[in-house]
Design a protein around this nucleic acid. Structure first.
Length: 276
DNA sequence: ATGCCTTGCATGGCAAGA
């Protein structure tokens, strides 16, 4: 089963090339981030016409996450349990943003995640980002405690570069977000909870994102911030993967590239283990 | 160069991205 994560930076602007991408790479499940559209205005027909079902949550022009699947979509959740909102005024109810959607597709629990950017280290959004990640960790722990054999993947735009080599110039990021120790610890906490980041060993590409500004893509100056974090049962079946650099290179591309992973079906995995 | 693109929107100069 081929599962992809892709921050599309507007699903309406890029509907043509997203559908083209699904066909070109024979995709089973695509988790999108930054659809930048409300549920009402989502271009559902473009995907249903192509043979996919859609689950989406979008409340305004910001954020927005979706899952499109041709292997079924069941039990949709439009936020993860315990997902915090942004509370610029602690006295008021938190605004839970459209940053997480979960659905079961072909026996895999898929969570499309758009982790808050953090903006500046001194900005309240930085604390929001850390809080969001730690609450996600608690959710993952709960899921694995309930069912250690669950096949689930938490994938998306994590807005964290876990290693220094995940950015083109670590000195450029001195004092900036995405590379700070607290952010990396929050990412590592997801790994400590039992997840495996499966894309790094499967692709030779360094980066998944290149800023539009300053010809960053043409200069090879990117960041590795999009990932697929799989539970043990699913991670054991990850076989091949790649970052679709060509998709990022075209005119009118998103600033993120699709990150693709092929997982063996549950049956094949059992057979494979027996053969071993 | 507190910039450089690109998006959506009460289509205006913003806000936001990373």
């Amino acid at each position: 089963m081929r599962i992809v994560t892709w921050n599309v930076n507007s699903v309406r602007t890029r509907a043509d090339r997203i559908v083209e991408f699904l066909h070109r790479h024979d995709v089973d499940v695509l988790a999108m981030q930054e659809t930048k559209v409300t549920d009402e205005k989502f271009p559902y027909d473009r995907f249903t016409d192509a043979g996919y079902e859609v689950a989406h949550v979008g409340r305004n022009q910001w954020n927005g996450v979706a899952i499109v699947s041709r292997v079924g979509i069941a039990d949709v959740e439009k936020q993860f349990p315990g997902q915090p909102g942004f509370d610029k005024d602690p006295g008021k109810p938190q605004d839970v943003e459209a940053r997480a959607i979960g659905a079961t597709c072909g026996g895999v629990r898929v969570w499309s995640l758009y982790v808050p950017n953090g903006r500046e280290i001194a900005d309240p959004h930085y604390d929001y980002k850390l809080r969001w990640l730690y609450n996600l960790r608690f959710h993952v722990q709960d899921q694995l405690r309930t069912d250690p054999d669950t096949r689930a993947v938490y994938l998306g735009d994590f807005n964290i570069a876990p290693l220094d080599r995940d950015v083109w110039d670590i000195d450029f990021f001195d004092g900036k977000t995405h590379i700070t120790e607290p952010e990396r610890q929050a990412f590592d906490a997801l790994i400590d909870a039992g997840l495996t980041e499966v894309t790094r060993p499967l692709t030779r590409e360094h980066y998944t994102y290149w800023d539009y500004k300053g010809m960053r893509f043409q200069k090879g100056e990117g960041m590795r911030i999009d990932f697929q974090l799989a539970t043990p049962a699913l991670a054991a079946t990850a076989r091949t993967g790649f970052v679709d650099i060509e998709e990022r290179s075209g005119k009118g591309a998103s600033d993120h590239a699709p990150v693709v992973v092929d997982y063996l079906p549950r049956e094949s995995s059992a057979a494979f283990d027996e053969v071993r």
